[in-house]
């Protein structure tokens, strides 16, 4: 150690050359604030456009007809704009996806958090995250060219495009999200709590089921709700693998259209600006937005409401 180093002097000297830095320091919050405002304004802009155009749509198609209509026939002379076929398409595909994603995701999370050794967890978690990074169009392609043909060997009545196959594949796509978020929730339960259970003679399963899951239930449910909202908003998979029939049906072996797939179809088809068809896009988009907004609010509410205190 050099005895001649005088830290006090050095700091004092540096202080004087740091005035420019100090100006910058003061500007930083302002710069950050303006950037934040830009993103907020963009959101408000999108919402405003959605609202204005949706109102224009409801001037032409009564709101009641839109929400209770079972016929969707946007083209031709007697166009009809009932949203129910799209709603059932969206809801059914979401339900099918959840039947896959919730049990498999939760069991994966239980395994990773409670059973896997550190080494296994350290390898599997990044793998899951890779799975989450696959573009959805790949999943869509996979559903159409791989899953549907296999399903058709089991279910002879299955249409070449149907809601079942994209629903299942959507579920697979969402597994990593449920697994990862639930695993985070479970592994944040302090290990003292597990030890309390083990010390009473509980098995690992009893500990997981009766202590860890209840203690992390808010995070787990929040992951389910976010998964649902993801499934509702999913577009590519259903567009590719479920076709564009605007059937109002509950038969999952048939082709159905979801709200998202409808938007893809209509925007791709050059709807003339100002036409009812054009406005219908906004009404459907608005419905979709309200759906996912409710889901996200619900997730927030649940994670606050059911937070176990420890």
């Amino acid at each position: 150690m050099d005895k001649n180093i005088n830290v006090r002097d050095m700091i004092h000297k540096n202080k004087q050359s740091m005035n420019i830095g100090r100006v910058w320091e003061k500007m930083v919050p302002k710069v950050l604030l303006s950037i934040a405002i830009i993103s907020i304004l963009t959101t408000i802009g999108i919402l405003a456009t959605l609202t204005v155009e949706t109102i224009a749509f409801f001037r032409e198609v009564p709101i009641l007809d839109f929400f209770t209509g079972t016929k969707l026939k946007p083209l031709g002379a007697n166009a009809e704009f009932g949203v129910l076929p799209l709603l059932t398409g969206t809801i059914l595909s979401t339900i099918i996806a959840m039947f896959v994603a919730i049990p498999v995701g939760l069991m994966t999370a239980v395994y990773l958090s409670e059973y896997a050794s550190d080494k296994v967890r350290r390898t599997l978690k990044p793998l899951l995250e890779v799975l989450a990074g696959i573009p959805t169009i790949v999943y869509g392609f996979f559903a159409y060219t791989f899953v549907t043909p296999i399903l058709r060997t089991f279910i002879p009545g299955l249409d070449p495009t149907n809601i079942l196959s994209p629903g299942l594949v959507m579920g697979i796509m969402i597994i990593p999200m449920v697994a990862s978020l639930s695993e985070d929730a479970m592994s944040s339960v302090p290990s003292e709590m597990r030890q309390g259970a083990f010390a009473l003679g509980a098995t690992r399963l009893e500990t997981t089921w009766r202590v860890v899951i209840p203690a992390s239930i808010s995070g787990i449910i929040a992951s389910f709700v976010l998964a649902i909202s993801r499934a509702i908003g999913e577009t590519m998979i259903v567009t590719i693998a479920s076709g564009s029939s605007k059937n109002f049906t509950f038969d999952i072996t048939q082709s159905m259209q979801t709200m998202t797939a409808y938007i893809v179809e209509v925007t791709g088809g050059e709807a003339p600006a100002g036409s009812t068809l054009y406005y219908s896009l906004y009404a459907v988009a608005m419905t979709l937005f309200v759906f996912t907004l409710i889901m996200n609010l619900l997730a927030q509410y649940i994670s606050r409401r059911f937070r176990e205190e420890y």
């Binding site: 302090p190 003292e192 709590m193 030890q195 309390g196 259970a197 010390a199 009473l200 003679g201 509980a202 009893e206 009766r210 202590v211 209840p214 203690a215 176990e308 205190e309 420890y310």
Partner: peptide, 22 residues
């Protein structure tokens, strides 16, 4: 244990936990 580690449950459920799992 050294640090009290009740379960994040009601007082009743804390005590009943052991008997229940058995």
């Amino acid at each position: 244990f050294q640090k009290p580690n009740p379960f994040p449950k009601s007082i009743y459920d804390n005590i009943a936990y052991g008997p229940r799992i058995h």
